[in-house]
Design a binder for these strands. Sequence first.
DNA 1: TTACGCATGTAACCAGTTACATGATTGA
DNA 2: TCAATCATGTAACTGGTTACATGCGTAA
Lengths: 179, 179
Amino acid sequence: MKNYNHTTYSILGILTTECRTGYAIKQLIDESLNHFWKISYGQIYPTLKMIVQDGLAEVHTSTQKGKPDRNEYFLTPKGRNALKTWLEEPVEQIPVERNEILLKLFFGSYQSKESTISLIEEYKQKLEARYETYKNIEHTISTYNNDASQYWLFTLDYGKRITMAAIEWCTSTLNQISV
Amino acid sequence: MKNYNHTTYSILGILTTECRTGYAIKQLIDESLNHFWKISYGQIYPTLKMIVQDGLAEVHTSTQKGKPDRNEYFLTPKGRNALKTWLEEPVEQIPVERNEILLKLFFGSYQSKESTISLIEEYKQKLEARYETYKNIEHTISTYNNDASQYWLFTLDYGKRITMAAIEWCTSTLNQISV
DNA sequence: TTACGCATGTAACCAGTTACATGATTGA
DNA sequence: TCAATCATGTAACTGGTTACATGCGTAA
């Protein structure tokens, strides 16, 4: 079976939900996956086209008065199969996430202590804001209680834990530098 | 002043050390920054060319018998300045790191419990291996004790904390799923 | 009347990877 | 003799972003 990229699988996955149009896919990602996944229309529409060409989904186009054509996509058995196969494959390797603050810190001996400190402090503030956002989303999701919500909460828990660890690193590093 | 991308600044930063050739830059990154940064020759050589064109560095070429020309790069005051300015700028926004395992987990209700569990278990093993690697590198660096080594240890500490948080998330999630 | 939501799509661009080509020296 | 190290570089490709174009309905 052909291999697709993660973007394609993310779209296949979303097509198992009620989101059927390119527009709705974008919305779902921005609302519910945005802490670990994002995507632009520039990827969505060409990918949907390819998905249909490869027989992973079918389009049903409905013309609406005053609005552009609405293309609704439905997974075919082949599409479901491709998704399932990918879901069960182990994650290849953990990617190296490029981290701008670590890059700057790596060259820390080339700049003043003060600017290093304010760099980390600003970063910490951003992390704290992010943590609050996660808590809010978590709260919203926990009121849903459908089949999928448990898994959504797992992904949020991941985000919270990682963010908290980063915040703690900021605190610890600031202490060590100030001394 | 012109803005460059992070790849360019990483090279400018490395040129403050004794690494002066494209080859040596690649080596330093692979050895010391690889847990949060990586780069390929396909980026390095064209970027070095551009850096010289923009007057951020100068090349000194030495011909060696039997080996290809060795191009050594030296930062100009303009280059040092560009680096310093960037170092002191706050980090814009924390990027969304795409996370394959969270993507798969998000569609967890579409697959069997067993395959979700083995997915997380395999991921956890990879994280544990990574943690060990970090500990080893940390041990090596702490024997150096030069000006920069303190900052290198900070970046490693970050890697360790984040990895540990992810491992704990695996454990917690596995417990919740198995119930 | 202005902006937002619905809805589709493309072209140009930027970033990054992979594979390839070259070739002498040195140590196992 | 085989692999690794030093050393440079390019071309094709994949992935992703941004900016643009279109246009009606509706609510403020």
